[in-house]
Amino acid sequence: MDLFKLEPGLAIWTWITFGILFFILARYVIPAILKNLQEREDYIHSSVDKTAEVEKRLKDMESERDEILKKAEVKADEMLLRIRQEGEELRQKLAKQAEKEASEILNQARIQAEQERGAMLESLKGELADIICSATEEVVGMTVVGEKEREISRELVNKL
């Protein structure tokens, strides 16, 4: 077992392969990788900045939204109040009108009832006069009852 066998060829080839690898890496690979890393770093930084900006804008928008909401709330409150007032007014007006109408209808009905009662009374009196006339005819036994008598009896009944 020759652990320390000298192989100059292997040593020289080590230098050669290392040199080739160094050339390749130093010339083509590492600058590209470092450039890419730099780019990525910049990209990340810009992304972070952008995120911060977006966040700020979001916050602004949020506060704006809050403001708008508050304004809207106030408006809504006002509106509600107004509507309530208006509703109240309308309700009162309607109630008043309805009351008026109702009393009118009541009056009319009363008047009509009065009239109807008067008419009924009139016809009742007429009937009564007729009955009296016919009763008198029956009692007297003759038809002496002319137009004149009828008028008289009617007046009589009316006086009752």
Binding site: F4, L6, E7, A11, I12, T14, F18
Partner: peptide
């Protein structure tokens, strides 16, 4: 392992 050879590591160390 090429690095298990004294010539390879020796060459690198001499470098």
């Amino acid at each position: 392992t090429a690095t298990g050879n004294i010539n390879v590591t020796g060459a690198l160390a001499i470098m």
